[in-house]
């Protein structure tokens, strides 16, 4: 019996390492794949999968944020301002999760995954967006910045536009994070990429800072309502963190467009599976 249990624990660990690598590459929390892995392949109830996932999201975010803080690519001011909206949304999301039927959760999960892919495929190839002038609010709060791009081998200065639509998208990203136990990194990256027109590397690394704080706003709710099961959460947290460390080392070496392509394809496949599960087909 104990060998079966240990074997199972190891399988979850290996799957979590894989999820962590992919998650770090896309600026995701890793949770976006953990919940599908746990529910589709390990038959864990979705509430417990969400509980384990949200913990792993914090581990990933804290672990890789430590590396990003040193790299100085992430913009802490933008991140701090935007987590106002993501944390508020996350609390709402965790509340909704507790009153939503399981099948509906699967369905929403799948839809969310697929939506997050579409805009990503559209703009592949644009390395650094060209923003003419700052949004007045961005100017006032000093959200613009610069970073050293190790692939382009130069300092990249950037301006920030669309702060209000960005903030609204962040509230939604936070709600999705709290509802599904994911970092909703894809949505945060999207908000910064599409609405605020930040360079993709700034978006992904800043989203990593935001993911942890956002996840904490719903993780407490899942933990103290008994939805964080240690048998699942332990291998998931350890595995995703290991994967994230590996993924972060890969990220600084590859071009932005290849990052997007990798995670777009994976998310699409997993999203379809979740929808099929929600519809009761698999």
């Amino acid at each position: 019996m104990i060998y079966i249990v240990i074997g199972y624990l190891m399988e979850i660990l290996v799957a979590s390492i894989a999820a962590g690598i992919i998650g770090a590459l896309g600026g995701l929390g890793g949770g976006v794949l953990i919940v599908p892995f746990l529910t589709l392949y390990f038959h864990v109830p979705i509430s417990l999968a969400i509980g384990a996932s949200i913990v792993s999201v914090i581990a990933t975010s804290s672990g890789s944020a430590a590396a990003y803080v040193r790299d100085k690519i992430s913009n802490i001011r933008i991140g701090t301002f935007l987590v106002l909206f993501t944390t508020t949304g996350a609390i709402l999301g965790a509340f909704i999760e507790h009153i939503t039927p399981v099948k509906v959760l699967f369905f929403i999960f799948g839809i969310v995954l697929i939506i997050s892919v579409i805009p990503m495929l559209k703009k592949i190839g644009e390395e650094v967006p060209n923003v003419e002038r700052n949004d007045p609010l961005a100017e006032k709060l000093g959200l613009y910045g610069e970073y050293y791009d190790s692939v382009l081998k130069r300092e990249v200065k950037y301006k920030v536009t669309g702060v209000k639509p960005g903030a609204a998208m962040m509230f939604m990203a936070g709600t999705i994070s709290g509802l599904l136990g994911i970092g909703s990194g894809a949505f945060k990256v999207l908000a910064m990429d599409l609405a605020m027109r930040l360079p993709i590397k700034v978006s992904t690394t800043t989203s990593n800072f935001m993911i942890g704080v956002t996840a904490a706003a719903s993780a407490g709710i899942y933990f103290f309502t008994g939805d964080v099961n240690p048998f699942i959460a332990a291998p998931v947290a350890i595995g995703v963190l290991l994967g994230a460390i590996i993924g972060t080392k890969i990220l600084v070496r590859i071009r932005s467009s290849s990052v997007r392509k990798i995670f777009a394809v994976i998310i699409l496949i997993v999203g379809l599976e979740m929808i099929l599960r929600g519809a009761g087909v698999i």
Binding site: I54, V55, I58, S61, G212, A216, A219, G220, V228, A237
Partner: peptide, 10 residues
């Protein structure tokens, strides 16, 4: 350990 981890962002 999980509790300490989830309070880290706090």
């Amino acid at each position: 350990g999980v509790l300490i981890l989830l309070l880290t962002p706090f």
